[in-house]
Simulated assay, not measured.
Amino acid sequence: MGLGCTCMITLQLACVGLVTLTIVQSLLFLVLAVSWRIHKEPPPLETNTYCVTCDDIRQSHPYTEKEHLIDAWRQIHNDSVCCGPTRRVMELRIRKEMKKRYVENGQANPSQLVGESFIPDCEWYGMKTPTAKLVGVVDSVPSDIVQGHSKLRWNKNGHTRTANKCIHLELEGEIFIKRPGYYIVSSTLIVNTTGTNNTTQIFGHNFNLLSHRYGTTSVLMHRQKSIKESDNVIFTSFISAAFKLYVNDRISISVSDPNYLANDSSNDHFTAYYTYDMS
């Protein structure tokens, strides 16, 4: 009887040992399998990584620092796709878009443009891209964002155009955004100080935002030029950049002295052009 009990205990211990060994072997196999998968497959993209075709961000001049950066972003499994930090990829893509619209049209320096336009009037019909192009300053009202500035109001007729969820609020002098995304925003003003009784030493040119999403106001772009009383000059003030705008955002242009601007000049523009949305 004692011998039988001993055999039963020995058998139970053997079964426990066998089960334990099986579990250990399974865990080891799982660890090896996971390690092999990580070694063989590329790691998943980070949430702040954005992928585009490399041609979308490649510049026309090779062998630059940016070109080496693009090559470093190329994917091993598909070398026509480049993945990099979202902000940097977006900057390169929009830079190429702006260069395409300016340089390839024979205008090499956008900061010197007089009457810049992203889209010719003949291309507006049938357009599906949210776009607003306000042309000609008619008057101004005190800015509620920048103290001492005047917010410009634009001609609602003439060359002014809006399309697809970009709305011109003519009484407010604003562009009302109804589709979220990255927009190329620009403004060109022809400033004429000739024959004026100048009391302003600095001419300021601002791009302002009233954010519905955050309930805040801010200046997103600013350019200023020193003006002396002895100056009799005409110059172009140009600002342009790309921003992420949200539904019901309102954007506007303000200046430190609207008296330097001609009334309803076709050379004065305020443009917002939708590019894409990565959300």
Results as ranks from 00 to 15, higher is better:
Leu92Glu: 08
Ile145Asn: 06
Asn109Ala: 06
His39Cys: 05
Glu123Thr: 06
Ala72Asn: 08
His159Gln: 13
His149Asn: 06
Lys133His: 12
Pro44Ile: 07
Glu65Lys: 09
Asp56Gly: 01
Gly173Met: 11
His168Asp: 14
Pro120Asn: 07
Lys133Asn: 09
Pro85Tyr: 10
Thr129Trp: 02
Asn155Arg: 15
Pro44Gln: 09
Ser140Gln: 14
Glu116Pro: 03
Met127Thr: 10
Leu169Ile: 04
Pro142Met: 15
Pro85Cys: 13
Cys122Ile: 12
Val31Ser: 11
Glu91Cys: 03
Trp73Gln: 03
Ser35Gln: 07
Ser111Phe: 02
Ala72Ser: 12
Ser80Trp: 01
Pro42Thr: 05
Ile38Thr: 04
Pro120Val: 15
Lys156Arg: 08
Cys54Glu: 03
Thr131Arg: 08
Thr49Phe: 15
Val114Ala: 11
Lys128His: 06
His39Pro: 00
Thr131Val: 15
Trp124Tyr: 12
Val103Ser: 02
Val138His: 02
Gly158Gln: 04
His159Arg: 07
Cys122Val: 14
Ser140Tyr: 02
Val114Phe: 04
Leu45Pro: 04
Thr86Trp: 05
Val103His: 02
Ser143Asp: 15
Trp73Ala: 05
Val81Ile: 11
Pro42Tyr: 05
Ser150Cys: 13
Asn109Lys: 02
Asn155Ile: 00
Val146Tyr: 14
Asn164Glu: 12
Val138Met: 14
Lys66Asp: 11
Ile145Phe: 01
Gln75Trp: 03
Ser150Lys: 14
Gln112Val: 13
Cys166Thr: 10
Ala108Trp: 02
Val52Thr: 07
Val138Tyr: 01
Gly106Ala: 05
Ser117Ile: 04
Leu152Ile: 04
Gly126Asn: 12
Arg161His: 12
Gln75Ile: 07
Asn157Ser: 06
Val135Asn: 01
Pro42Ile: 13
Thr53Glu: 08
Arg93Gly: 07
Gly84Ile: 01
Asn155Val: 00
Ile70Pro: 01
Thr160His: 12
Pro110Asp: 06
Pro142Phe: 06
Pro62Trp: 15
Ile57Asp: 05
Ser35Thr: 06
Val135Met: 04
Gly136Asp: 10
Lys151Phe: 00
Gly106Val: 10
Ser60Asp: 15
Lys40Ala: 06
Lys66Gln: 10
Gly126Tyr: 03
Lys100Phe: 14
Ile76Met: 08
Glu116Asn: 11
Gly126Asp: 08
Asn155Trp: 12
Arg58Thr: 12
Ala163Glu: 03
Asn155Pro: 00
Val135Phe: 00
Pro142Arg: 15
Trp73Ser: 09
Pro130Ser: 10
His39Ser: 07
Cys82Met: 01
Val31Pro: 03
Ala33Thr: 13
Trp154Pro: 00
Leu45Arg: 03
Val81Tyr: 14
Asp56Cys: 02
Glu91Ser: 12
Asn157Thr: 13
Pro142Asp: 13
Pro42Val: 13
Lys96Asn: 04
Leu152Lys: 05
Val135Lys: 12
Gly136Pro: 05
Cys82Thr: 02
Leu92Asp: 01
Thr49Lys: 10
Ala108His: 01
Asn78Cys: 12
Tyr125Pro: 13
Gln147Tyr: 11
Val31His: 06
Asn105Leu: 02
Met90Tyr: 05
Ile145Arg: 00
Asn109Glu: 03
Asn155Ala: 01
Met127Gly: 05
Leu69Ala: 08
Tyr63Leu: 11
Trp36Phe: 07
Cys82Asp: 00
Gly106Ser: 08
Gln59His: 14
Asp79Phe: 00
Ile57Cys: 03
Asp71Met: 05
Leu134Asn: 02
Thr129Cys: 08
Gln112Asn: 10
